[in-house]
Design a protein around this nucleic acid. Structure first.
Lengths: 153, 153
DNA sequence: CAAGGTAGTAAGATTCTCTGACTAATGTCC
DNA sequence: GGACATTAGTCAGAGAATCTTACTACCTTG
């Protein structure tokens, strides 16, 4: 009780700091690599597109924005060449949002930065705690992610 | 390629899910308690106000927005009675943003929800992993939080 | 086929956020 | 002490993100 005691910080805030750090790093790298029209909001939708394409409604739910917001962001991503909309063979109302050529290039850059940041974090935390962190956060997701395992398989 | 294998999710995204969950819960409780004019953006600034008051520039830095954005949010918080600006005795240019009466009431509600959510998380993860999570995130903050330990003591 | 639900779009307002330019107080360096 | 750079904060205006309400087209179920 005498030293420079660490004041209490809630877990949500602690996660925010880490999340925000990763986001900034990725966005910064994208801007430097010619993807200057990528923004945080667009990236939050973009990064949730699955390999076989994802419906707008699912993107909206995962990113936790309304369908209209997601739709507007996808419009911009489409015009910028990051994604394309294809008809969904299983439902004529729906369309699958798929990653287009420019999007693939961005994904590669982003994946590189993510790997590097995670490596830096592992250096700081140690292999053991880094593994722990991933495992615990993954388990936490079971209670905090409304979308978790309700998605389209 | 056969089972429902857990697909790789980066640590930033994992933290986002947890952070967002906490934020939603707190905001929801505030809205139900008569603090309907509180928003996520305002809360992100508000929750960083220290016990002795905090300067606008520090709030902006911690919340990772510009001074202008923070200033605008503080204006709204002030008009809504959550905070008040007082002269900073140590610098006539600066003012200390302090939590006002209504703000204290909101803090109490928020603190209650945070405690409850953390309790739920502890139930899900187990005491041991919950402690681990806090410890690891706190340590991670040393590398990810640009404001960390650069603040006004 | 009719009724109700789901996928997505349209229009418009509000909120958040930034850039650029500015004032006033402080700190620094001779 | 005075010139100059720095720091705290505000003003003005634009752009981005987000929401609510309302709508169309398609699907599902009986």
């Amino acid at each position: 009780m005498t030293g420079p005691e660490e004041q209490y910080v809630n877990l949500g805030l602690l996660m925010f700091v880490g999340y925000r750090s990763m986001e900034s790093r990725v966005l910064e790298a994208l801007h430097e690599s010619g993807f200057e029209d990528m923004s945080a909001a667009k990236a939050r939708v973009f990064e949730r597109i699955g390999a076989q394409g994802t419906r707008l409604t699912d993107l909206a739910e995962q990113a936790q924005v309304t369908k209209q917001t997601a739709g507007s962001l996808v419009d911009q991503l489409e015009q910028a060449g990051y994604v394309e909309r294809r008809p969904d063979p299983s439902d004529a109302r729906a369309r699958l949002i798929c990653i287009a050529e420019r999007g693939l290039a961005a994904v590669q850059v982003a994946a590189g930065v993510v790997a590097q940041v995670e490596e830096e974090w592992t250096q700081h935390l140690g292999e053991r705690d880094a593994r722990h962190l991933r495992r615990i956060l993954t388990r936490l997701r079971e209670t905090t992610d409304p979308y978790w395992r309700s998605g389209p398989g």
